[in-house]
Write a protein that binds this DNA or RNA. Structure first.
Lengths: 359, 359
DNA sequence: GGACTCCATGTTAGCGTTAACATCACTTCT
DNA sequence: AGAAGTGATGTTAACGCTAACATGGAGTCC
């Protein structure tokens, strides 16, 4: 009663007085079974409360209908939203999801994680880890026959990938500031190793360069609000005049807004702030944050669909699925204040004079 | 070259000129193997790049070393942090994690999800779904022999569980306001179905009742910042005087702060706000949020450890692991302003008079 | 020096399922 | 009426691994 032995096909077959194979046919729906036999089998299944064993099915069919999702730092907004999207898509397609956190970005930790997933015989893997082109190719070399959709690699890498067009989003953000008339723009990046990050970083710089500008400061955070706060204080302490900040994610932007507020700087009158992600909080911050919307759940779903496609076709063509983010303009951006600009210009002139004098 | 057949124990055995069983002994570390034999086998393993098949191992040993995590709405703060904690603990113990989202709270969706996990032969399940006592017992009845640690059930339910002491945390929050001298407290709950929520709700009410108070308003949100914002506007529109709000999570509190700010109400001078969770943003909101800290990653790790314990012992004793949250006092709470209180009292008297007159 | 133990290894029989082939009773066609 | 399907079932051999028992040789004991 407490722990009766597991019910197998054989048990059902015995009760229904048919062969195992017939029961298998009823369960899987493959092959012809007479209506009355099917009814008898189904009755037996219900009576015994039979549950198929996916391990055995996987072993026999050489296909597990499970996929792995390998990602870094699940506690951040992006990976957790991604997980939600992937899980839903997988479940709807009849797949299970094995989630595995990669200890660090880069080849070595990734290899370790993929080895674990391959042992579990997943049919394919979604890999949300920052890898440069060389690493990606090495991963493919080390795991031949393991269908893998990359989610954080440089656009154009010749492998199956589902990516956000980070460069496009970053350009939107930068151009928005430029159109408003900003010329003294600081940028606050995420951790330097992130591939997405360097794409954003370059797009920001490129957009500024189009207007013959370079960022007045370049800071780095770790995606956390606290790091955004700290970076902003460093920026202010540096004394370099600026009228806008491009921030690599909304969570850091929370810290940025806070730091500016603390120092009596009004957003957007004194400083414009643009975030990235459009988290649910962003619309309700003080002030509501102008940001770049990224739809992670949808990206996850598309990535899974892409993997499914890879599993189906014999020839895994290296199609890239690109999702395009959009700019959401809210109240944290405005044209630079003329007054503040002139004050800052004067200040800078003074500094330059002092520097010339001192040097 | 492209898709060579999988390497099995038999292949390794043939190359090393020993029996399969000897290779198995080397791989698993069970049983004695002579040093020189072991070396030969290891060389063969390395040469062939052999990877054990966990499916086959699971089938043979009747143990998969994988656990399921069933949860609702992975996109929220709590479940995603929990996932991170569980995954890490599981990985460190050599277990894989199958994540499965339950469509809705309640028995039926839970049963569906657990059936799927059982098919995959997980050794046990961590269940982060709101269930009342009756449902929990029914789940146990329907899945005998499936070790399960419940994470969102009423404290005291006689089943293995890893819980946060929600009532304690809620009491801390309420008593903090009472000590400050607040008497007109509104409460903003999460969705009504949530078990944790009703625990918080009751603890809030009980703490107020100790001081012969009842909440002046009772609102409900869906955990999102937008719902916190909307609820606050409803509260303000209702015209009931209040000097403090107890909010069921920090994300909603973001919306609450925003709504109050929009209406020109100062936090904490005019209204005190207490959140719940202590998200990374909370310390950097305007103003920094007084809140109840919940350490989800640690809870997840403890829950997994509890499950592991259940798997080891023959007699699954229904121990409950309780994690105690703590109050973090920041700048969103202060004593009620006397001025505002008297204005509100006058207003209320007037309302009462009007009501009496009208009725 | 024979019984006893211990170690290193091999052999056999599953674990629960499916694929591939085999069987046998009916139809249906010409 | 005989050939040729076709529909419903059964039989057998994997899938990759481990548990349990079997074997045989080397050392130990009195």
């Amino acid at each position: 009663m407490t722990d009766r032995k597991t019910i197998t096909l054989a048990d059902v077959a015995a009760l229904a007085d048919v062969s195992q194979q017939t029961v298998s046919r009823v369960v899987t729906g493959n092959g012809q079974v007479a209506a009355h036999t099917r009814a008898r089998v189904n009755a037996a299944i219900a009576h015994l409360n039979y549950v198929p064993n996916r391990l055995a099915i996987g072993l026999a069919r050489q296909r597990t209908y499970s996929v792995g999702f390998a990602t870094t730092d699940l506690s951040l907004h992006a990976p957790s939203q991604l997980t939600a999207g992937i899980e839903q898509a997988a479940r709807e397609a009849g797949y299970s999801l094995l989630v595995s956190i990669v200890a660090a970005n880069g080849l070595s930790a990734t290899t370790h994680t993929l080895r674990g997933l391959r042992e579990r015989q997943v049919d394919g893997v979604l890999l949300n880890v920052s890898l440069d082109t060389a690493d990606v190719l090495e991963v493919q070399r080390r795991f031949p026959g393991l269908p893998c959709v990359f989610m954080d690699v440089p656009i154009g890498t010749p492998v199956p990938a589902a990516l956000l067009d980070q460069a496009h989003g970053a350009r939107l953000a930068a151009e928005h500031l430029l159109e408003l008339g900003h010329t003294r723009v600081a940028i606050l990046d995420g951790p330097r190793h992130a591939v997405v990050e360097s794409a954003r970083h370059h797009a920001w710089r490129d957009a500024l360069a189009t207007h013959d500008l370079t960022p007045v400061a370049h800071l780095e955070g770790d995606w956390s609000p606290a790091s955004g706060y700290a970076a902003t204080l460093r920026l202010l302490a540096g004394g370099v005049p600026f009228t806008a900040i491009l921030v690599a994610n909304d969570q850091m932007a929370v810290g940025v807004l806070r730091a500016l507020w603390e120092r009596g700087l009004n957003v957007p009158a004194d400083v414009s702030v643009v975030g990235y992600d459009d988290t649910p909080e962003s619309a309700l911050l003080i002030p509501p944050l102008t940001t770049v919307r990224q739809d992670f759940p949808t990206l996850g779903a598309r990535a899974f669909a892409h993997l499914l496609n890879l599993l189906g076709t014999e020839d895994p063509h290296s199609l890239q699925v690109l999702t395009v983010p959009e700019l959401v303009i809210r109240a944290s951006t405005a044209p630079p204040s003329v007054e503040r600009q002139s004050v800052q210009a004067a200040l800078e002139t003074l500094r330059a004079a002092l520097a010339a004098h001192g040097g």
